[in-house]
Design a binder for these strands. Structure first.
Lengths: 139, 139
DNA sequence: ACACATATATGCCTGAGACATATATAGGGA
DNA sequence: TCCCTATATATGTCTCAGGCATATATGTGT
């Protein structure tokens, strides 16, 4: 079923893919995070990969594929623009910045995330109301 | 790309599957919702389908498949138990109740959802800090 | 020469979820 | 009787996001 030796682990339960037990994902959450980071400061993928940890993305080993693919998709959709930067040392970097369409998308995400937060809050209220009763879920 | 005539619609943006534009999902969120509802009051699938709306599940037309499959999976994992109820009129109902393992799972979910909420809050803080600057995402 | 950090890109596979459909029971109306 | 609807459960198919692996290239240090 779903067993590793890292303590709490539930069958198909609250976990990342294949039982990482780090929490259920908010779908596509990486998208608004990338947009926000890029609005704060234009950057390239490898840099964003590091900075994503600040949003709770499992820092230990970030997946480059995830980051780069999302950036390319956002570019295809006109949400970000990129240009090669060969000025520094090392391999060329693709410098991204957000377009005005991308700003609109982030605004939309803002609303979505507020709504999402409200949903989780509603759940927790109800969950804690239940826990206050005798038949608490933890006991 | 992603266009319908229902107003706000972003390419692959904040939306349910295939551009429903109703908000990005929290993965597997239906699971803790079902457990919580069943702890509040044992019930059958069709009933739960209705009650799920209270958690923000797109009420208009709820998907029975989603509900029933999740219930059966939870039962296979020993998180809930069911028995047929043929007492009432109409077709037989499968009455579900939560097991002690299921309660533990809900407790774990509680922690996950609190963490998730914190992540969204952190994002929103940072998002609003940016919006306070001149280069606000919406303007 | 070799290892390593930096940097980008692509391929494969799985699981959740959206959508459609099948099946059965019972009640009401034409 | 036949049909429509509400109630109730179950299953098939397809797509997409994400996890994991891998390929490629450049510069630095030893």
């Amino acid at each position: 079923m779903c067993s590793d030796d890292r303590g709490q682990c539930y069958p198909h339960g609250p976990g990342q893919h294949r039982c990482d037990c780090a929490g259920s994902r908010v779908e596509r959450f990486i998208e608004p995070c990338l947009l926000l980071l890029l609005l704060e400061k234009p950057a390239h993928g490898y840099d964003l990969m590091e900075r994503l940890r600040e949003f709770g993305f499992d820092g230990e080993d970030q997946d480059p594929g995830m980051v780069y693919r999302n950036l390319r998709r956002l570019e295809n959709q006109g949400m970000v623009e990129s240009e090669w930067d060969t000025s520094g040392p090392g391999p060329a970097k693709r410098l991204y910045q957000v377009t005005s369409e991308g700003r609109d998308l982030l605004t939309a995400w803002g609303a979505v995330i507020r709504r999402n937060k409200a949903t989780l809050e509603k759940f927790l209220e109800r969950y804690e109301a239940l826990a206050g009763r005798s038949d608490t879920p933890s006991g």
